[in-house]
Design a protein around this nucleic acid. Structure first.
Lengths: 114, 114
DNA sequence: GCATAACATTCGATAATTAGAATATACATC
DNA sequence: GATGTATATTCTAATTATCGAATGTTATGC
């Protein structure tokens, strides 16, 4: 019945399961600590949307926040997450060919919705 | 516009974002190659449901299959995935206390659906 | 206090995931 | 070819995620 552990892990992966949130995590990995303004400027998403995604990351406690005056600075709670993404990059590179095929699929489905 | 890469990675995390699929991956990591029957017996899910989850893993090409007579054997396409889960285990252990709190939350929400 | 800036939350509408039931396919045995 | 076993797919209903628009909150400056 230790399915709880699996639910916990799945929950974390779910938090990572969105392009915008991946981009956020990578930004935090690269720049250490970033205010929300920079996040939504850099990623080109609306402020409210960025906030929503940040809320997801907070809910799973993948990030920490620090308030400084008017702004809120986000950072990764644990550099391990950066490592996980590094592994994913390795994975991507190891399977570049299939990855490309998958990406093409994604593209074409998007253009001709069936 | 290299958002495609983020979509690719997010897609993989999404494939991992379900307790049953985590359990499948861990089973494959531990037992190398496993027929579907063993998967749904071991995890205690219905056959059709196991098949659906395996379909998700196949779609993202996280697993390979080999047919032998009547049965289909599944295995991890790349041991890197096992490593990702190992990292997650580290992460889990490093944050055991918060993890417990999150699990408790999950439990209580489940019991009193508000 | 009033205005503004930086974030966060709530509210709808739409889309995607999920489980189970029913159905289909593929292979082996007789 | 009929039967049985292993796996996959399709359908439907329920849940969950996502986005943009609108609204709230908190802190700063005047």
């Amino acid at each position: 019945m230790n399915d709880n552990l699996h639910r916990f892990k799945a929950g974390i992966f779910q938090a990572l399961a969105h392009p915008t949130r991946i981009a956020v995590i990578e930004l935090l990995r690269d720049e250490r600590e970033v205010p929300v303004s920079r996040i939504h400027e850099r990623l080109g998403v609306e402020q409210a949307n960025a906030s929503q995604h940040l809320a997801v990351l907070r809910a799973k406690e993948l990030v920490t926040t620090r308030k400084e005056g008017n702004q809120v600075f986000y950072s990764l709670r644990d550099p391990l997450l950066g490592k996980v993404l590094d592994l994913m990059k390795q994975y991507f590179e190891a399977h570049l060919n299939e990855a490309m095929a998958l990406l093409m699929d994604m593209k074409s489905e998007e253009q001709q919705p069936k």
